[in-house]
Nucleic acid binder design. Structure first.
Lengths: 342, 342
DNA sequence: GCCCGCATTGTTATCGGTCACATTCATGGG
DNA sequence: CCCATGAATGTGACCGATAACAATGCGGGC
């Protein structure tokens, strides 16, 4: 009467009973402890199979003070960079046998980041990855109160935490040098919002490449990542008439710019060359197809995880750089060409 | 000597000691139990504050067999629909006081979905939301072995599980009726991959709208969501010369189509009208700005959560529809207009 | 032949909460 | 005045795993 044949899931004791061993021996088998006789191990594994037993992660985490879940603090946006980074981290975590818990933030400010990390800490995550493309977020990450192991992505400065990011400066250089090589006198730049680190770095890389070539550095046009800001900047540039090459800080802005130039009768690339950044899936099918800079977000995810596992001390490879910068690559399409002969 | 003044985090016993009550009373305060004197409650809350105590979610889940985390099974892609749905769910969950754990799948097949749900079940999530835009995934979700409460998003058939989805048929109708209203004889359709439910529904809605108006139904062009497939279809349509209106199953395909038409010298909307689906951020800045159908993914997220909470029995509102369909809306821009006078 | 050490296995405490039940005390009807 | 009732609080078991330590058996060195 006391037995309820309901579909209750099996726990470690059930396995132990079926295998005729103690629950501790079952635990040893599950955790690959060396001191278990082969025959015993097999008996246990058979029981596990038979009962379709799966260890309870909560109990494991509570007893062992370590969990197989890592937290990710992200930004509540479907912008290509953060979204792709999140997926990259998820993929890397999954392949390493970790689950991921995410908290998205509406505003990436100090208290928001700290609060998010605390929420994740409550769930006893093994560590966290903070996707911090904004200055404020990176600063907040650098001054976390709790003792949670943390890695910061899309940022290269966050107190003494390890960071992982794409080398934005190098990416901007690639874009600018490509345009100079084509024969352009100089290159204009439509930047992203100035509180974004990536936007800053791209400005820096753009300026450095121009200065290294001894070229005039035009004023920076300020955008906000949106196609709208690219559109508006495009109208202004079309009105000037003396611009032959523009480097846009992301593909969406480049898209808006292409549209503005087209409306004004400015031909791309015959009159003006345009280069973007990100290589979003649409880039190859714009009119004209967009020359742009591609970032390897899978690699970013992998390195985030490697850095985190290193912090957790579960990984042997000793030589993980503390601030690796993933190199981007240039994708040349039809939106860039030599300047008009005039 | 036995005391270690290290920054050990406070646990419930520490709070109890400081407040001069039993740990159980602290637990009562934390869980809003009615039978606690106001003065006692305040003393406990003061201690909580003072120690910066945060309850351990693992222990809570283990002891109480309920957790404040819901799992999300998603598709390993940055396609607009799934990505936006994920964010919508996260936002709704956060506002309801739940955390979310995600597992992304490379292939949405039966064993993949079941495996993902099992992985989440191991972590004792309160329930799961399965984003299942493919037939295979929906079928798998409908035959889950475990007893985990589950809701299926982006699907309207999954065994007897509750589902939440945007009304794709209605969305397609909006697009087609808009074009017919403009005076077009009929409307062609570039579909998505046929194993996607949304693609199917959009085909159905398109066909239904044409038939309801007594119009000829052209053959369906098959795409795969990519701008490339839109581009290729666009070339084929341009070659025909008798097409005046096209409804593309998503904006990326519409983008590729716009490019192909432009290359062939076909003017949009003067010669051919094009309507997309999704209203991606880029849509308003294409050449020409794209008329499209917008889906409210925040609403989808909210309803998923409402359905899940209903399953969990923690929510009063009794009248939550079991298969709600969120209505989409038409966004008219410049890519659609009356057919050529000829 | 005795003792030590290692491999193997079992026993019990513990993680940090919640649950079920016991206890205490004030209140009120008969 | 007594006892049933319910509010307020405490005690100990329990959730399902791992950790620490004990116990057992076997082989080898002296």
């Amino acid at each position: 009467m006391s037995q309820q044949p309901a579909a209750r899931v099996a726990v470690i004791k059930d396995v132990a009973r079926l295998a005729g061993v103690s629950h501790q021996t079952v635990s040893r088998v599950l955790n690959d402890h060396p001191s278990v006789r082969d025959e015993t191990r097999e008996r246990v594994l058979r029981a596990v199979q038979q009962l379709n037993y799966r260890p309870n992660a909560l109990a494991r985490g509570l007893a062992g003070r370590r969990s197989r879940v890592i937290g990710v603090v992200s930004f509540d946006t479907i912008l290509h960079g953060p979204a792709a980074t999140l997926l990259g981290i998820e993929r890397a975590a999954r392949h390493a046998g970790y689950g991921i818990s995410i908290v998205a933030l509406e505003r990436l400010d100090r208290s928001g980041v700290i609060d998010a990390v605390n929420r994740l800490a409550e769930q006893s995550v093994a560590g966290v990855v903070i996707i911090a493309p904004l200055l404020t977020a990176a600063a907040a990450a650098g001054s976390l109160p709790s003792g949670v192991p943390a890695v910061v992505a899309e940022s290269d400065m966050a107190g003494d935490l390890p960071t992982v990011s794409v080398d934005q400066v190098a990416g901007a250089r690639l874009a600018v040098e490509h345009l100079l090589d084509l024969g352009h006198e100089t290159v204009w730049h439509l930047s992203g919002p100035k509180d974004w680190l990536e936007a800053r770095d791209r400005v820096d890389g753009w300026r450095a490449a121009l200065e290294a070539a001894g070229r005039r550095v035009p004023p920076v046009l300020a955008g906000d990542w949106s196609p709208r800001s690219g559109y508006e900047a495009g109208r202004r540039l079309a009105d000037r008439g003396d611009v032959t090459a523009v480097f846009c800080a992301n593909d969406q802005q480049a898209l808006g710019m292409l549209r503005a130039l087209h409306e004004r009768g400015v031909r791309v690339p015959e009159d003006v060359s345009v280069v973007g950044f990100d290589d979003i899936p649409e880039a190859a099918y714009l009119s004209p197809p967009l020359t742009t800079v591609r970032q390897d977000f899978d690699e970013v995810g992998r390195r985030c995880l490697a850095a985190l596992l290193e912090l957790l001390g579960v990984d042997r490879p000793p030589g993980v750089a503390r601030h690796p910068r993933v190199p981007p690559s240039l994708v040349v399409r039809a939106s860039s060409g030599p300047p008009p002969a005039a």
